[in-house]
Design a protein around this nucleic acid. Structure first.
Lengths: 194, 194
DNA sequence: TCCCTAATTGACAGCGTGTCAATAGACACG
DNA sequence: CGTGTCTATTGACACGCTGTCAATTAGGGA
């Protein structure tokens, strides 16, 4: 798994990210990635056991490069409940465009690949944590609606902010990024707060 | 395309629907479908040009069998705006479980198959019509929020009722059907009405 | 009986993944 | 200088699934 020379491995991961971002969801082939990384197809198998693991590693690579966790934590760790809610929507909403291609690919892959499904669920579980945190603060500040339990509120918020919803609104409906964030903040506010 | 003996064709379509419903999203193989239909793999190609077209035909077959359009029209054609909104959510929400397997398969397929994408978009466009109708009536009855345009409201409602959202809430979060419908009605009401 | 159609059987090409063996180049070590 | 090791390349191959083709069989109607 861990190679002594990191440059080739990194180059492969970068190439994978670039390729998947430029062609979201399309089944990028191993040979395509190899070509883009300037490496033989078989070299990929020297660093990653198979296609799925390569994609999973690329996902982590990307998360680290973009500093997702830090950004999320910073945004939702101060202010009253409603402010944190708005910050969560804004931060996550700004992050999605950068990882959409990879995410789409994993989403497609997870339907037929157990390993990919595990990785995807873990990733989504992390984000659900952030949603849960915000909902808890809303409740503590007495701002949460009485119509839903805390868990239901978390479920709804997590679903609302799904990558698929971002895709539908921005890609299919043509909303721009600013409108997406604003509308989502508004909707979350209306549904979750008293 | 049109066969003189409909029984074999129908048996294939039924087998396809059954198989896709029992294993949602999984890439059901042509040989699996043939086995289930009690027919040779090559017989499938006598009735459908390829895998994608078979799935598309099966989708239509299913929509007709379940009478989707009639149900939708009946539900949203009477009452004031808010009543029609509730009816739309209830009718569509009750329909999704019956077609989830097929829908999931098409959703996966559309990422790599142009033809499947076309069919899927057409299908989703039909449902968007229903959403648009309800939003128009809401506006006419003066019940629509001022925070969104009619088109934005339609976009949001259509996204909200996406099959993926149903999947996240009922499959991943474990909501039962009744709760899903109730919460969705509530959320739609809060976000869309003044 | 002859013909037409639907269906079966078996074979095969194409494509992508994953594996394997043989080989080449770089580099450290004695 | 020669040797061993690590990384990468090349070329070949098995496997699984889709889609195509040719030869053959079974049934029904004129």
């Amino acid at each position: 798994m861990s190679s002594t020379n990191p440059t080739t491995r990194t180059r492969i991961l970068d190439a994978t990210c670039e390729l998947l971002e430029s062609t979201p969801g399309t089944g990028a082939r191993m040979s395509d990635i190899a070509k883009r990384a300037g490496v033989s197809r078989q070299a990929l198998y020297l660093h990653f056991p198979n296609r799925t693991e390569l994609f999973i590693a690329a996902t982590r690579h990307q998360d680290i490069a973009h500093g997702l966790h830090a950004a999320l934590d910073a945004g939702i760790c101060s202010g009253r409940g409603t402010d944190r809610l708005a910050a969560l929507v804004a931060t996550w909403g700004a992050y999605i465009p950068h990882i959409f291609g990879m995410a789409k690919t994993l989403m497609v892959l997870k339907e037929t690949d157990e390993e990919a499904a595990r990785a995807w669920n873990e990733r989504m579980g992390d984000f659900r944590e952030a949603c849960s945190t915000v909902v808890t603060v809303l409740a503590r500040d007495g701002q949460l609606t009485a119509a839903m339990t805390q868990e239901e509120s978390t479920d709804w918020l997590w679903t609302q902010l799904s990558i698929t919803n971002w895709e539908l609104l921005t890609q299919s409906c043509g909303w721009d990024q600013a409108r997406y964030v604003m509308m989502m903040q508004q909707a979350a506010h209306r549904v979750l707060t008293a």
